[in-house]
């Protein structure tokens, strides 16, 4: 038996059918093709599947899709808008805060939630806030610095974390820069 679920995902109304045993992660990825959220452990220990559910970051592997009835969901696919990267995305790129990239969507969603709650976090607050997200490649250094850098952007400091133009073609000449 499948259940009909109506949700809002990344600002748009989305309806889907699912079995009660299907996780939100499974439905987002397999039914709705929102494959930005990743499965790393499927039991809430790695954070790669982090999405926003009614304004709070959750592990979508630990949410049943049927629970999302009436919920507002945001995924990594909704962070950039109309070709403009979010400051966090831009800072992750400029700061080389990703290597293999599998944990990156989860980090971005969690970091965005963190900055919305605490726009000027200390290093320790960032580390505590992102402790639910595992990264095996970077040693976290550049991730923490990218979040710090994003918090310093004017956009991040204005309400709602508005977008700024993407600067994908820019080469950052940061010889010996402390990044």
């Amino acid at each position: 038996m499948k259940t009909h679920v109506t949700t809002t995902i990344n600002g748009g109304s989305v309806e889907f059918l699912c079995q009660p045993r299907q996780s939100l992660l499974e439905v987002l990825r397999d039914e709705l093709s929102l494959t930005g959220c990743k499965e790393g452990c499927n039991n809430g220990n790695c954070g790669a599947c982090t999405v926003m559910l009614d304004g709070l970051p959750v592990n979508s592997c630990l949410v049943l899709a049927v629970e999302a009835e009436g919920a507002v969901i945001e995924t990594v696919e909704g962070i950039a808008e109309q070709g403009h990267l979010h400051p966090l995305q831009q800072c992750f790129l400029e700061g080389a805060a990703l290597q293999c990239g599998i944990c990156t969507p989860g980090f971005l969603v969690a970091a965005k939630a963190l900055l919305e709650k605490n726009p000027q976090p200390s290093e320790q607050e960032i580390r505590f806030g992102l402790a639910g997200n595992l990264c095996r490649c970077t040693g976290y250094d550049k991730i923490v610095r990218a979040v710090q850098a994003a918090a310093q952007t004017p956009e991040a400091q204005s309400p709602g974390l508005s977008k700024r133009p993407g600067l994908l073609s820019r080469t950052t000449q940061t010889e010996a820069k402390s990044l």
Binding site: T35, K38, V76, L93, A96
Partner: peptide, 24 residues
């Protein structure tokens, strides 16, 4: 010795990069 933005970067920060499990 410079630090250009990686070519696959935009795909990876927007969730568009295709990993094996993303294939259907």
């Amino acid at each position: 010795g410079t630090r250009p933005i990686r070519h696959d970067g935009a795909d990876k920060v927007t969730g568009k990069a295709v990993y094996t499990d993303d294939l259907h």
